[in-house]
Computed example of a mutant assay.
Amino acid sequence: MASTRLEINFNRLLNRCEAVASDKSLKDWRLEKYIGALQNQLSELKKAQSKPCDEILSGYTKKVELLKGLIEAEKMPTASEKAHATDLLSVPRTTSSTSGKQLHMQAKVMYQQEMRDELLGSGHTDDEDVGLRQRQKTKDQDIDTVLQHHHQIQEKLAEEMLVIAQGLKHNVTVSGKIVQDDIKKVTDSTRLAETNLGKLKTESERLQAHTKACSWWIWVMLVVVIITFCWMVLLMRLFPKKS
């Protein structure tokens, strides 16, 4: 339910545009201008302070885009292009978008009917029917050629992807072996370092023991030398040399 004057005017214009678009017999050239005005009102509605919630604005936007898309599809030169452009349009999913869904379905049915009329050649002479069938046959052959070409490209891409996958698998295997070898070398180096460290510790303890023993012997020798010196001095005093 509209809560502002701007939203009321917007809904009135939206209903008018949907009514004109649904009645193909009118062919109102002003419909495109109406949709332009509808877009302007929607922009103002989005900027308004008392604007509707985001869900409602999203529904309005999709309705306007659908109307604009239907106008653009109507300008396509062939029925197949019109049908394709109509299929690409986004249809509002809300429960209040029944008119939009009806417009979309109506346009699809109409363009499909035009495509059938073109294929069946309604209203053409026999020569035109033969030419139409020949053109359709040529078109079918062209489609088969394109499909075959696409199939060949897909097979080639599949083969290339298989080769790339095999190459990646080989690289992963080689990399895994290299990593395992590096881990083994690091482990061996660590063990060797631990062994050498143990041996170095043992030799250090042994050297420390030898150093301690040598230190004691040096002190003993020093004491012996001092005692010998003192003894010799004492002897020289006790037995002086005769003159």
Score class of each variant (00 low, 15 high):
78 T>S: 11
79 A>K: 03
80 S>F: 11
82 K>D: 03
84 H>D: 04
84 H>M: 01
85 A>W: 04
86 T>S: 00
88 L>D: 11
88 L>M: 12
88 L>A: 13
90 S>L: 02
90 S>Y: 01
91 V>G: 07
91 V>Y: 11
93 R>W: 02
94 T>W: 08
94 T>E: 12
95 T>K: 12
97 S>F: 00
97 S>R: 00
98 T>L: 05
98 T>G: 04
99 S>M: 06
99 S>R: 09
100 G>E: 02
101 K>P: 00
103 L>D: 10
103 L>P: 04
104 H>Q: 11
107 A>E: 06
107 A>K: 02
109 V>S: 07
110 M>C: 03
113 Q>P: 00
114 E>P: 01
115 M>G: 08
116 R>C: 06
116 R>F: 10
119 L>R: 12
122 S>Y: 02
122 S>I: 03
124 H>Q: 09
125 T>A: 06
125 T>M: 12
128 E>F: 03
130 V>I: 07
132 L>F: 09
133 R>E: 13
134 Q>I: 10
135 R>I: 06
135 R>P: 00
138 T>K: 04
138 T>H: 01
139 K>D: 08
139 K>S: 11
141 Q>N: 15
144 D>F: 15
146 V>C: 04
154 Q>T: 07
156 K>H: 12
158 A>M: 13
159 E>N: 10
162 L>S: 11
165 A>D: 10
166 Q>W: 01
167 G>Q: 15
168 L>G: 08
168 L>Y: 06
169 K>Y: 01
170 H>M: 15
171 N>I: 06
173 T>F: 04
173 T>K: 11
175 S>N: 11
175 S>H: 08
178 I>K: 15
178 I>L: 15
178 I>P: 07
181 D>C: 04
182 D>P: 03
182 D>F: 09
182 D>N: 13
183 I>R: 14
183 I>T: 13
183 I>L: 15
185 K>H: 08
